[in-house]
Simulated scan of single mutants.
Amino acid sequence: MYETGVTVAFLLWLYGCISTVVRKNSLLEKNLNKIGKKTSLLGSGIVDIRYPRDSASKSILKYVAVMGVSLILIVFSWLYVAVSLFAIFYSFRKDLGVPPAIKEYRWKLRNVDMSFDEIIKAIVELEGLDDSEYPRVRQEWIEYINRLKS
C-alpha cells in the first residue's frame, strides 16, 4: 500500500514539475511580464517581478530547489497525494463563481499575445472605468513598474 502511495505521489510530483515548466513558459507569463507581474514558482498565484531579473541559471536553480524539496516530501506517500489532489481541486473550484468579465480577461491573458496598451485597456474595462480614464490608469501602471525596477 505504501509503495502504491509513493508511486502515485511521484506521478503527481512529475505532473507538478511539468505543469510548472509549461506555466512559466506560457503566453500568460509573457503577458504578465509586460505589466510587472509573473506567476509564482510555489503555486498558482501571481506576484510582482523582482528587479533586476534573475539570470536563466538562477531561475533554473530555484526551480530545481523547489522541485527537489517537493520530491523529498513524496515519502509521506498518501498524505502528499491528498494534499496535491486538494490543491488541484481547489484551483479548479475557486474559479467557478468568477464573473464572466474576469473569465474573459483571464482567457485573453492566457491565449492572446497582448501589448502593454491592450492589457491596460482590458484592466480599464474590467474595473468598469470610462475610456477617458485610460491615460491615468496607464500612467499609474508605468509608475508601478518603474517603482519595481528601482
Rank of each mutant, 00 (worst) to 15 (best):
R93H: 12
D95S: 12
S57G: 01
V47R: 11
N33L: 14
D95R: 12
E133C: 08
G68F: 07
G128T: 03
N146S: 14
G45P: 08
V83R: 02
A9M: 05
P52G: 05
L73F: 14
E127D: 14
F92A: 07
V6A: 08
L96C: 00
E143A: 11
L14H: 03
S150T: 12
K58G: 01
I145A: 10
I72C: 11
G43D: 15
Y144M: 05
G5N: 04
Y2P: 00
V124K: 04
T20D: 12
E118G: 10
V64T: 06
S150E: 15
E143V: 02
G97A: 02
C17E: 00
N31Q: 09
V64E: 01
I35F: 10
R106L: 14
D48V: 03
D113N: 15
V47M: 13
F116N: 03
R23A: 15
Y63N: 00
I72H: 01
I142Y: 02
W141A: 06
K149M: 09
E29T: 14
S70M: 09
L11R: 04
V83G: 01
S57L: 03
V21Q: 09
K108V: 00
F116Q: 06
V8Q: 02
N146H: 10
L11D: 08
W13R: 07
S91K: 08
A56W: 06
N25I: 05
Y134I: 01
I102R: 09
P52W: 05
L129S: 02
G16F: 10
W13F: 10
D113W: 04
I119L: 02
Y134D: 06
L126R: 13
N25Y: 12
E104I: 01
Y15P: 01
V124I: 06
E140D: 13
I18R: 11
E29N: 15
D131M: 03
R50C: 09
K37Y: 14
E133S: 14
I74N: 00
V6Y: 04
D130T: 06
S77L: 02
S59N: 13
W141S: 04
E104N: 11
F116C: 01
T4L: 13
A56M: 06
S84G: 08
E125H: 08
L148V: 04
I74T: 12
S84V: 00
K94A: 11
W141Y: 15
E127F: 03
I46W: 11
N111S: 12
N111T: 13
S132Y: 01
C17A: 15
S150G: 15
F92G: 11
I88V: 14
